[in-house]
Each structure stands twice: as C-alpha cells, then as structure tokens.
Simulated assay, not measured.
Amino acid sequence: MKRIAAAALVAVGMAVGVVPAVSAAEGNELTAIRTGLHAGFDRVVFDFTGPRPSVTEYRTTSLEHCASGKPITATGDEFLVVSMQPANAHDYAGPRAFDTPGLSKVRSVTNTCDFEAHLDFAIGYATKGRAYRISFLDNPTRVVVDVNNS
C-alpha cells in the first residue's frame, strides 16, 4: 500500500511540474510579424499574446527545418535565426515565409521551426556579419530585431 501511495505522489508531482510549461506555451501565441525601414536599420517585429519568451540567436548561411532536417530555401547572404521559447505559431494565419523588398538590407523572413513550444524564424539579409540588436517591447509583447543597414 505504501508503494502505491508513493507512486501516486510521484505521479502527481510530475504532473504539477509539467503543466505550467505547457500552459505558458499555450499563452505565448504569435499573432503578427511586421517589418519596417528606419534610419540606419531594418526592423522585424514578432507580436505575441503572452509573456516575453526567452530568445536566443545564431547566424548561419543555410537553413533547415527543425523537425525534418530538410533544407529551406530563403533569400539572403546570411541568416540570423531567432529562437523563441516558450512560443508557438499554431494558430498564426499570416505568412510564414516572405521576401521584404521594401527594406534596405533585410531580404526575407522565414519560419524554420514551430514544434513543442519552440519557435524559430530566420531573417535573411545582404552581406555577411551584419550588426543586429534584439530587444523587447510590452503591451502587447513583442520581440524586436533591428538589423543595421549601413
């Protein structure tokens, strides 16, 4: 009987530990992607319904889909991959890949991952090694990527 009670307590503890992460991901839904040309930089903005996601980034010259590993074709000499967690775009109705002809150096924005509260977008730009800055805005939650265009 003690084993059954202990197993039940362990199961409840594990369930409680997992539920908050799932709930946080569900409330962090991508709602819009916007781009804009500014003096000295191009801007890409990701709007969310929930709290700020954690953001990491890296540069690459080739893209692949996170789940399948299949190559992704997008416009750019180099790509800044912005990874946001917990976040998803399951109900996002806007474009997941598009070119940006109105910007100075940013050439494209492409979704490379939307899996298990892990959302990645690659920002393709002209000329490798371009400077960038990532910041946050609130009400609504936004992840802002500024890419130097000079």
Rank of each mutant, 00 (worst) to 15 (best):
residue 5 A to H: 09
residue 121 F to P: 02
residue 124 G to F: 08
residue 5 A to Q: 11
residue 100 T to I: 05
residue 75 T to N: 09
residue 112 T to A: 07
residue 104 S to D: 14
residue 68 S to F: 13
residue 29 E to C: 00
residue 61 T to L: 02
residue 24 A to C: 00
residue 2 K to P: 03
residue 98 F to Y: 11
residue 59 R to T: 04
residue 58 Y to F: 14
residue 132 Y to R: 09
residue 96 R to I: 14
residue 65 H to G: 03
residue 6 A to K: 13
residue 69 G to V: 08
residue 9 L to H: 00
residue 128 K to T: 14
residue 129 G to W: 09
residue 49 T to V: 05
residue 35 T to A: 14
residue 52 R to C: 11
residue 135 S to K: 11
residue 63 L to Q: 05
residue 132 Y to L: 11
residue 100 T to H: 03
residue 38 H to F: 12
residue 74 A to P: 06
residue 94 G to T: 07
residue 138 D to L: 09
residue 142 R to W: 05
residue 62 S to M: 05
residue 71 P to S: 12
residue 99 D to E: 15
residue 37 L to G: 08
residue 38 H to Y: 13
residue 124 G to W: 12
residue 78 E to F: 05
residue 44 V to P: 04
residue 118 H to V: 06
residue 11 A to Y: 09
residue 125 Y to F: 15
residue 52 R to V: 13
residue 62 S to Y: 00
residue 115 F to Y: 15
residue 138 D to A: 15
residue 107 R to G: 00
residue 129 G to H: 07
residue 75 T to I: 07
residue 78 E to G: 01
residue 53 P to R: 05
residue 18 V to P: 03
residue 104 S to L: 08
residue 12 V to Y: 10
residue 1 M to C: 09
residue 45 V to K: 05
residue 138 D to W: 09
residue 32 A to L: 05
residue 35 T to I: 11
residue 103 L to H: 03
residue 37 L to R: 15
residue 134 I to R: 02
residue 7 A to G: 15
residue 131 A to W: 00
residue 142 R to F: 11
residue 45 V to Y: 00
residue 73 T to V: 14
residue 7 A to I: 09
residue 74 A to F: 06
residue 147 V to Q: 03
residue 120 D to H: 11
residue 14 M to S: 10
residue 145 V to H: 08
residue 28 N to C: 14
residue 86 P to K: 03
residue 107 R to N: 05
residue 18 V to H: 12
residue 97 A to C: 07
residue 129 G to D: 08
residue 21 A to R: 14
residue 98 F to K: 10
residue 89 A to Q: 00
residue 137 L to F: 07
residue 84 M to V: 04
residue 100 T to G: 01
residue 53 P to T: 05
residue 76 G to C: 09
residue 69 G to W: 12
residue 130 R to T: 14
residue 46 F to L: 04
residue 9 L to K: 02
residue 95 P to Q: 15
residue 89 A to K: 02
residue 66 C to A: 15
residue 142 R to K: 15
residue 126 A to V: 14
residue 136 F to L: 13
residue 70 K to G: 14
residue 136 F to P: 05
residue 30 L to H: 05
residue 65 H to T: 08
residue 46 F to W: 06
residue 16 V to G: 13
residue 58 Y to T: 04
residue 111 N to P: 00
residue 105 K to G: 01
residue 27 G to F: 09
